[in-house]
Each structure stands twice: as C-alpha cells, then as structure tokens.
C-alpha cells in the first residue's frame, strides 16, 4: 500500500498554521460552492441528454431538480459532522462514509481513491437527479440513470487514476 509520508514542509508551527488557515478557507468555500457546482454540472448533463431524447425541458427546471437531488449529499455532510465531532482531529483521515473505509488511512493508490468515490450518498443523489430528469423529460428513469451513472463512472475512474498518478509522481 502506498501511504503518504509525513510532509517536512509542515514541521514548523508557522507552516502548520498556514496550512490550517488554507484548509479553513478551502473548507468554507467548498461547503458554500459544492452544492451550486453539483447542481450546475448535473443540470448541464441532464440538458445534454435532453438535447437527444425526451420532451424539451428548460435548463432552469433541470437545475431545480439538481438542487433537490443534492440533499442526500447534504445528509452525508451531517453524518460526517457527527463522526468528526466524535473523532480526534488527528484521526480525521480515517473518517469516511465511502468504500475507502476498507483501506488504511492516508492510502492513495488507484483502488483506494476509486473506493473513496464509491459513496452511497453520491449514488443516491445521482439516482434522484436521474429520476427528476426522467419525470420532467417524460423519459425512462433507466435510460437517464444509465447515462448519469456511466458519466459518473468515467469521472470516478479518471479522477482516481490521475489522482493516484500525481501522488505517485510527487512522492516517488
């Protein structure tokens, strides 16, 4: 298993403080922007499907479906909060609600990164987006669901592969 070695750049208190501040700013921005980005991207994917099949539906209606489809992911954030509050900060790396639980913390191999993408809440959100899109487009849930799932699978495989490759290059 390839595990991340301790980062010598974070050995000084100043560097650790800067890293913590960066994590906080990134965390706040991510928390605020992730639901919007999810809705924008999923609605765009549904609109692309709609260009080829089903009754024509305006983008803003598909966007509203995608906003509500995010709710399972919000639930996963709340579960993550509950787990995080009961876990020492040093062990945050071991908190996961994905198949990454099967791997030791701080493992960044391709299978581990792929397992980190396999989260029941993202699959639930994608199912809801497919269901909502199918209802609005008067199409079959199976067709829209297969399309969304296939795109997510390609994304999960590609991001895991390139993530593992870049970490491997960084740490040898």
């Amino acid at each position: 298993m390839q595990q991340m070695p301790d980062n010598p750049a974070l050995s000084s208190p100043e560097a650790l403080d800067m890293a913590a501040n960066a994590a906080i700013i990134g965390g706040i921005a991510g928390a605020l922007l992730t639901p919007l980005l999810f809705a924008l991207i999923v609605a765009l994917l549904l609109k692309l499907f709609n260009a080829l099949a089903g009754d024509k539906v305006p983008y803003r209606k598909l966007f509203s479906v995608s906003v509500y489809a995010y709710l399972p992911l919000l639930l996963s954030s709340l579960i993550g909060l509950a787990l995080g509050l009961t876990t020492p900060a040093e062990n945050f790396g071991s908190i996961s609600i994905s198949l990454y639980l099967l791997f030791p913390p701080d493992t960044y191999t391709f299978p581990a990164l792929l397992a980190a993408q396999i989260n029941p809440f993202i699959l639930w959100s994608l199912y809801l987006a497919a269901l909502g899109g199918a209802i609005l487009m008067k199409s079959e849930v199976k067709k829209v669901g297969s399309y969304i799932f296939l795109l997510w699978l390609i994304y999960a495989l590609a991001s895991s592969y390139f993530g593992a490759a870049s970490i491997s290059n960084l740490y040898g």
């Binding site: 994590a23 605020l32 906003v67 919000l74 909060l81 509050l85």
Partner: peptide, 26 residues
C-alpha cells in the same frame, strides 16, 4: 421550479456542518 431558497438553505447547512470540523482543525 423554485430553487433559490432551497440552494441557500442547502449551502448554509453545508457550511454549518463544516465549520465545527474546521475549528477543530484550527
């Protein structure tokens, strides 16, 4: 197809779920 209020609530809850963990890291 109203979505603005839903998006605002979701973003604020998402932020509220993140802040305690970030303060723990800090």
């Amino acid at each position: 197809h109203s979505w603005l209020a839903a998006l605002l609530v979701i973003s604020l809850v998402s932020l509220a779920a993140t802040l305690p963990l970030l303060s723990k890291i800090k």
